[in-house]
Nucleic acid binder design. Structure first.
Length: 885
DNA sequence: ATTGTCACG
DNA sequence: ACGTACGTGACAATG
């Protein structure tokens, strides 16, 4: 058999792979796109060439002999991004396990080594293949040497032979050196001759073949301008030729025999591919090294039937007491938009579709409320809301693909079922975005062909079943089964109810406040223009910055990456230096109130019910908290009186009151429980004011002698502890010197030793395991903890400290929510849980149930969990949110 | 689509 | 020596 030598230009492939692919990231936060693309290209080339010999060449960092010739060589190269840098050692690790020889030199570049190898190969009569994305290699092509030139993407490859080069460029391979001498190379910062590009260059080389010959016959060049350019650039051309010529006699220790291809270390490769989540790579390995979970999805994934009578599923349900379902709808039922279809799949049966109008709702109610039939779904909250509207009380729903995936990795940006599917399976996907498009032209389900629509939802329902066991297994392995079944799944129904019920909102109250705000804004606007001496857009930070810092010469306190910072803390520091500052702060405040809380809220009041149905989201935050959108009801103003007035628009339902219950210091209590700090536990046990207690320790004064300022500062220290403290952060917050902040912290940790130890332990633990967890085993992976970059690592450490605290508090209130909701339901009370604000619950309470509700809320919230610290709940009632808080 | 700002816990 | 508090969502301006 003939010897075939595959020589790989590692550096160029690595860069090409990185820029050709989106930034892929593993669950642990490892970037893998360059590695993936690299391995893919190498494997493709190996498959194509079937080499007997193999080598990879890399550039090393630092200067090479070319820098001696021209100091600016590669001077235009930008710093490699961090995401790329990280992948570098991992590629080498893979190559090691592929048993490929890696060559690099402090003096020569990858192409010089490759040139030398191809020369060696040529001399021995090998067939040589150079795999690269760099055109420079064309000069190495000869009868025995071809270039595998990667094109756009990572799968396309051109095979460059002598003939192909002649055909494409009309010149000989070696003449590429001459061409580059003339046109230069911007990526390597080789100058060439100014004003000569590929076109002119090719024409000249075609005619004169070498630059020596060109300059010997310079008078034969047509065109005066061009001749001038050539004469002016002669030096540069010859230097560029030197720079652009690939060296072919780099001294090497290895002989060709050393590059003989050897078998891979499959065991190790399989391990790495798993870590990198390279499922398709695993498939290329011999059978016994493949990943078991990778499962082929076939076309039946998309099969379905349409039915006219829902009862057709009844016989299937006889054997399998399990079904997945999804309503297909373009809107919200509480906005009077009815679903178009219902998709159902009884386990192991075909997916069935039925028009919404054709549904026998009594039958639907029967199966949905049948405790013996388990239900599965994806984004079940949406479907439960629809069922609620139909008066159906779903029972025994046991899996929600979205919620499950969120528990497995809470830091993803979305939980699109197609993306989840791609992470578990190999093929057979349908992307909703491909179907509906995005942006302004986004279609609705109604716009789609019925066939496309059904195909997609058939995929969804089939995927729910395919994922069920895999996700549940993982959840079990990570000890989150109880968290999933006893907390998150029951909560889905609670959140569905909160969204469905909504909160009674009085638009007239908002209109009244609006009138006053409009007046205030008008006056402020005029006064600001007056002092600025011109009119401008006060809402534009850019324009405001110009007025304040260029025109009016206020001192610049802080800059953002685009210009001057005009944020409130900056303006705060400028207070007293001019009346305009206070006016801008006021203007900002009222402008915010108007846009977000007057206009914004008015726009989302349901016309028919006069209620606002905020969507409470369960899979958004990295810590386990719930979030609220459209509108966000978790950030209604309270800190300033003007803003707080907005709360008067949120009313109890007719004749009732709002009962508001909030946990007192829940995060600090959680911290006391987690750290088991004796002092802190003691303080809570004795019902002390925790900020006052902190102040007495930080400032070394008696508990009773703490003054207001000290308490205020101690409060900031406590916040800092919860956030993962830094002296700088505290100093900024309190506007005190960093040294003073450091002293506060040292005093604090010197006294609360349990907390100090806990913090160190938590960080170590996070670094070792790659994640931290809450009291109830909710997990958050923190790849930042092992970053080389100080800032990123510090950020990771603060996350490691904050997440267990914030997350455990979130766990606690979630448990309380489920208990309160279920108790209200069990007792058949009219009162409904309608809002959660992280440490606070609001129940829209019927008048005759007030005492009962207050009692049960306090009891269930304070005793929702069993901790070594007491939980304390404060209660308030009122006709509206202003009064109940 | 991104940035700056600001509302909340 | 590094430059920072943790977690969200909405809006207006601007690229």
């Amino acid at each position: 058999m003939d010897n075939k030598f595959l020589i790989i230009d590692g550096s160029s492939l690595f860069f090409r792979a990185f820029y050709a692919l989106p930034l892929l990231k593993t669950k642990r936060g490892l970037y893998t796109n360059a590695i993936y693309g690299f391995v893919m290209m190498v494997e493709n080339a190996i498959e194509k060439v079937k080499p007997t010999h193999l080598a990879v060449c890399f550039d090393m960092k630092g200067k090479t002999f070319r820098s001696e010739i021209y100091k600016d060589y590669k001077g235009t190269r930008q710093k490699t991004p961090n995401e790329l840098e990280q992948q570098w050692p991992l590629v080498r690790e893979i190559l090691d396990h592929m048993n490929v020889k890696i060559l690099e030199s402090p003096v020569y570049e990858a192409d010089d080594i490759a040139g030398t190898l191809s020369k060696l190969g040529t001399e021995e009569g090998f067939e040589n293949y150079l795999l690269t994305g760099d055109k420079d290699y064309f000069q190495l092509v000869n009868e025995k040497t071809k270039v595998l030139f990667t094109r756009k993407g990572i799968t396309d490859m051109d095979i460059m032979t002598v003939e192909k080069i002649k055909e494409d460029y009309g010149i000989e391979p070696l003449e590429f050196i001459e061409l580059k001498a003339l046109m230069g190379d911007s990526s390597d910062n080789i100058p060439g001759i100014y004003g000569i590009g590929e076109k002119t260059g090719l024409k000249l080389i075609h005619e004169f073949h070498t630059i020596e010959n060109l300059y010997d016959n310079i008078d034969d060049v047509s065109g005066k301008k061009l001749k001038e350019k050539l004469i002016d650039g002669k030096m540069s051309a010859f230097m560029s030729k030197k720079l652009g010529t690939i060296v072919k006699d780099v001294p090497l220790e290895e002989s060709l025999d050393d590059f003989k291809k050897v078998d891979y270390d499959y065991e190790k490769l399989s391990e790495l591919y798993r870590e990198f989540e390279f499922n398709s790579m695993l498939d290329r390995l011999p059978e016994k090294y493949r990943k078991e979970e990778v499962e082929e999805i076939s076309q039946d994934n998309f099969e379905f039937v349409e039915i006219k009578d829902l009862k057709e599923i009844e016989k299937d349900l006889k054997d399998k007491k399990s079904l997945a379902f999804k309503f297909i709808t373009d809107g919200k039922i509480y906005e009077d938009v009815k679903p178009i279809y219902l998709a159902v799949k009884v386990k192991d049966s075909e997916v069935k579709f039925i028009s919404y109008e054709d549904i026998d709702f009594d039958f639907l109610k029967k199966i949905m409320e049948d405790e013996k039939v388990e239900k599965l779904g994806y984004s079940l909250k949406e479907d439960i809301i629809i069922l609620m509207d139909l008066g159906i009380d779903i029972k025994n729903y046991s899996h929600d693909v979205e919620i499950a995936e969120y528990l497995l990795n809470s830091t993803q940006s979305d939980y699109d079922i197609n993306k989840i599917s791609m992470a578990y399976f190999k093929n057979g996907y349908l992307d909703l975005e491909d179907l509906l498009g995005k942006g302004a032209k986004k279609k609705t389900y109604t716009d789609l062909d019925k066939d496309d629509l059904f195909k997609y939802f058939a995929f969804v329902l089939n995927t729910i079943y395919r994922l069920e066991d895999l996700q549940k297994e993982k959840i079990d392995e990570e000890e989150m089964t109880s968290l999933y079944q006893d907390m998150e799944l029951p909560l889905v129904e609670v959140l569905a109810s909160m969204e469905y019920v909504g909160i009674n909102t009085d638009e007239a109250v908002l209109d009244e406040i609006d009138k006053q705000i409009i007046e205030k804004l008008k006056t402020l606007e005029e006064e600001i223009y007056e002092e600025a001496g011109e009119e401008f857009n006060i809402n534009s930070p850019k324009q405001l910055g110009v007025i304040l810092f260029d025109k009016m010469d206020f001192p610049v306190i802080k800059k953002t990456k685009t210009g001057y910072s005009t944020s409130a803390d900056v303006l705060e520091k400028l207070r007293g230096k001019g009346e305009i500052i206070d006016k801008i702060l006021d203007y900002r405040k009222f402008s915010k109130l108007k846009s977000t809380y007057i206009d914004g809220l008015k726009a989302v009041i349901n016309k028919k019910t006069k209620r606002i149905h905020s969507r409470f989201m369960q899979t958004v935050t990295a810590t386990g908290r719930i979030s609220s959108t459209d509108p966000n009801l978790q950030n209604i103003p309270i800190k300033t009186e003007e803003g707080r007035l907005i709360r008067k628009a949120f009313l109890a339902s007719e004749g009732g009151v709002l009962v508001d219950a909030d946990y007192s210091q829940i995060e600090l209590r959680v911290l006391a429980a987690l750290s088991d700090d004796k002092e802190m536990l003691d303080a809570f046990k004795h019902g002390l004011d925790i900020h006052r207690k902190t102040a007495s320790e930080v400032f070394h004064v008696d508990y009773d002698d703490v003054d207001d300022r000290q308490r205020y500062e101690a409060k900031a220290v406590n916040f800092g502890i919860v956030y993962g403290i830094s002296d700088y952060g505290l100093s900024q917050n309190l506007n005190i010197p960093r040294k003073a902040a450091k002293e506060y912290i040292d005093n604090y940790l010197g006294h609360f030793v349990g907390i100090k130890n806990y913090m160190a332990e938590e960080i170590k633990n996070g670094k070792d395991k790659g994640y931290v967890e809450t009291i109830f085993k909710r997990r958050r992976y923190i790849p930042e903890l092992n970053a080389k970059n100080f800032n990123i690592r510090s950020f990771g450490e603060r996350i490691a400290l904050n997440t267990p605290i914030q997350g455990s508090a979130a766990d606690i209130i979630k448990i309380a929510m489920v208990k309160v909701y279920n108790e209200l339901k069990k007792r058949n009370l009219k009162s409904k849980l309608i809002i959660q604000i992280h440490d606070e619950l609001v129940v829209d309470t019927a008048e005759d149930e007030i005492e009962e509700v207050k009692e049960l809320m306090k009891d269930l919230m304070e005793n929702s969990v069993d901790l070594n610290v007491k939980l304390s709940v404060d209660m308030n009632t009122g006709a509206n949110l202003y009064e109940s808080k």
